[in-house]
């Protein structure tokens, strides 16, 4: 068995930790660092509950080794809000009832944020395709699609805090622009 010293920067906060080679990124985040907003669902890279951003891209953290993420910038659901101010996607999920039990929601939102960064004005079909890798067993998806549409509109009109995700903002992926992590 090998152990490895790694550095993960999560929501702007740098963490040094020692992990077994087999430690999954999801477990390092949850069990070692306490970012329990990241849920673990199917354990087989299908359900997307464990989605986080790894160097700006949505990935399933149950299907990545923590050692593979050594040196990476990670953003979890805890890094979405700006202090007490919810991110547009969080407000939209709340307003549109985009969740019932809430288990899939952190992953849904992390995937949605990447989707809206790449495509600020998606059609409903594009939203469904973009969220193909996130399963919900409560809502029937209608309100989730509504929520992503709502957030897209808010972000485009600049009516709400963008939480650092507006597409044309060059600092969009810079986790230092949010304080979600520092407050931990």
């Amino acid at each position: 068995m090998t152990e490895h010293d790694i550095t993960l920067t999560v929501n702007g906060t740098e963490h040094d930790l020692t992990v077994e080679a087999r430690t999954l990124l999801a477990h390092a985040l949850r069990d070692e660092l306490g970012y329990t907003g990241t849920n673990i669902g199917c354990e087989s890279s299908l359900c997307g509950a464990c989605t986080v951003h790894l160097d700006g891209e949505a990935v399933k953290s149950c299907t990545a080794l923590a050692v593979q993420a050594d040196g990476a910038e990670i953003r979890t659901v805890e890094g979405l809000a700006d202090g007490d101010e919810l991110h547009a996607i969080q407000r939209a999920f709340q307003e549109e009832h985009g969740l019932q039990c809430g288990y899939c929601t952190p992953g849904m939102m992390m995937t949605s944020v990447e989707l809206l960064k790449e495509n600020p004005n998606p059609t409903r079909e594009e939203i469904r395709e973009g969220l193909e890798g996130n399963l919900c067993r409560c809502t029937g998806y209608q309100n989730i699609v509504n929520a992503v549409e709502n957030a897209a509109e808010s972000l485009r009109s600049g009516a709400v805090a963008d939480g650092g995700t507006v597409a044309d903002d060059p600092t969009a992926d810079d986790p230092t622009t949010t304080d979600g992590g520092e407050s931990k």
Binding site: A58, V59, K60, T63, T111, G130, E132, N134
Partner: peptide, 9 residues
């Protein structure tokens, strides 16, 4: 292939 997250990795 797969979905967005799978294609990213």
């Amino acid at each position: 292939v797969g979905d967005e997250q799978v294609r990213n990795r």
